[in-house]
């Protein structure tokens, strides 16, 4: 028996919109810890890890660990039928091949049940090691989205370089090149508007902008994005989900041949 009630149902709608273009099918895992997902894109270049902690739900019942194979496009279609203020409850049962999404309006005067078919998905769970990163950049998520969008109109790849001067985003394409530098900026009143750079060592890595632009679909989930870089690891682009958990995108770099 599974029953997860989320007062702020819009969070789940936003999560789906953020990942459905990157990953088409995935297993949602439900345990005492929370509702989570780990999946790679079809080319195995990017990985998304989502965690919505059980404490973040208004009601969380998960009698036994349960893995639900879901086509994310279909789930997104169903969640789009929930109003922006609706409370969403996810209901499931062991041994059934469906999951039910219940939408309640805030005034409780409209209740909708959407039942969705589950599917068998053969997915491998990857072990993500705890790591020390050479540089961690925290910046406004909207600013990062703007940079990725702008650079994406010029080139296909972005070189992200962190030095003590700041973080530099560089691209080159047929029409020319572009270079955007963001300096550390903590002097603002609103901490979410700051750019903070923690650097142990300078680092410079190249990534496909197509994926970066896909990750920025999570911008509505958090005002701040954290970009963790190390020359030995995929970059981590993390959006915290208020009070609940996170959505982390891992992207393997492009390496000089």
């Amino acid at each position: 028996m599974l029953e997860l009630r989320l007062i702020q149902g819009s969070l789940l709608k936003k999560v789906l919109e953020a990942i459905k273009d990157l990953v088409t099918e995935a297993n949602f895992d439900c345990s005492a810890t929370g509702f989570s997902l780990q999946a790679m894109d079809s080319s195995h270049v990017a990985l998304v890890a989502l965690l919505l902690r059980s404490e973040g739900f208004d009601h969380y019942r998960c009698d036994r660990n349960l893995s639900m194979g879901i086509n994310l496009n279909n789930m997104s279609k169903m969640l789009r039928c929930a109003g922006p203020e609706d409370i969403i409850t996810i209901k499931g049962d062991d041994g059934t091949d469906t999951v039910t999404f219940m939408f309640e309006s805030q005034k409780q005067d409209k209740i909708s049940d959407f039942e969705m078919k589950l599917m068998d998905i053969d997915s491998e769970h990857l072990g993500i090691p705890d790591a020390e990163y050479q540089a961690i950049v925290r910046m406004p998520s909207a600013e990062f989205a703007r940079i990725c969008k702008d650079l994406g109109s010029i080139g296909d790849t972005v070189v992200i370089s962190v030095t003590k001067e700041g973080v530099k985003f560089f691209t080159r394409g047929d029409v020319g090149s572009a270079n955007i530098v963001c300096r550390q900026n903590t002097s603002v009143d609103k901490p979410e508007d700051s750019t903070v750079i923690e650097m142990n060592e300078p680092v410079s890595l190249t990534f496909a902008l197509r994926y970066m632009n896909s990750f920025t679909k999570a911008t509505t989930l958090s005002e701040v994005v954290t970009i963790s870089l190390s020359s030995e690891l995929p970059v981590v682009v993390e959006y915290k989900i208020a009070e609940m958990g996170y959505i982390r995108f891992y992207l393997a770099p492009k390496i000089e041949d």
Partner: peptide
């Protein structure tokens, strides 16, 4: 020429 690495080059199967 840049070569795209894959996630599995870094993270092992659990």
């Amino acid at each position: 020429k840049c070569m795209q690495r894959q996630i599995l080059d870094y993270f092992g199967r659990d």
